[in-house]
Amino acid sequence: MNIARSMGGATDVHLTDEGRVAVHQLKNLQKDRAARLRHTMDAFLRWLFAAAGDQAPINPALYLTTPGSFFAGAEISGSELHQAFAHLAQHDIIEIFDTEPGSVAITAEGVSCALSGASVQDHTNQPRPGDSITFNIGYIRVSTDRQVEDGFGLAVQEKTVRTWCRQHGHTLGRAVYRDEGYSGTLPAPERPALADALSEVEDGQAAGIVVGRLDRLARRLVTQEAILAQVWKNNGRVFTADQGEILQDDPEDPMRTALRQMMGVFSELEHSMIVARLRAGRTEKAVQGGYAYGAPPYGWQAVAGELVEQPVEQVGLARARELRAAGASLREICRRLEAERFPPRRSDRWHPEAVRRMLQHETPYTLRPRTT
Rank of each mutant, 00 (worst) to 15 (best):
P192N: 03
R324F: 15
P343S: 05
G169L: 06
T163W: 02
E18Y: 13
Y365T: 13
G327Y: 09
P311W: 04
I106Y: 02
S77K: 14
Q30L: 07
I209F: 00
R357K: 12
C334F: 09
A295D: 11
V211N: 00
G244C: 01
Q310N: 15
A50M: 12
G281F: 06
A302W: 00
W47G: 01
V238W: 01
Q90A: 11
A276I: 08
V287K: 14
Y291L: 04
G316Y: 03
R279P: 01
T240I: 00
A295N: 12
P101I: 11
D131Y: 07
L81S: 05
S272I: 02
Q55R: 13
A229D: 14
D131P: 06
Q157E: 05
G169M: 06
V210K: 04
R216M: 04
W350L: 05
E338W: 08
G169D: 10
E338N: 05
V308R: 09
S77A: 12
E245R: 01
E245C: 00
V104G: 06
L154T: 04
T134A: 12
A61T: 08
R46S: 13
Q224S: 02
G212D: 04
E332S: 14
D98F: 06
V142R: 03
G102S: 07
D215P: 01
M263H: 09
R174T: 13
G78S: 10
T65W: 09
H168S: 06
H168M: 04
G8P: 00
A108S: 15
I246S: 00
G204I: 05
E332Y: 06
L359E: 11
G68Y: 10
N28Y: 08
A195P: 03
L186I: 01
I106E: 02
G102R: 12
P296F: 05
R33W: 05
T11I: 15
R321W: 10
R346V: 10
P189N: 08
A241H: 03
L172R: 10
C113H: 09
P364L: 03
L269H: 10
T366G: 04
G138Q: 03
R324D: 15
P60I: 07
P101Y: 03
L317I: 08
T283Q: 13
Q205N: 14
A258E: 00
S69T: 08
R346Q: 11
I137D: 03
G327V: 04
T40F: 02
G173Y: 10
M263G: 14
Y63G: 02
T66P: 07
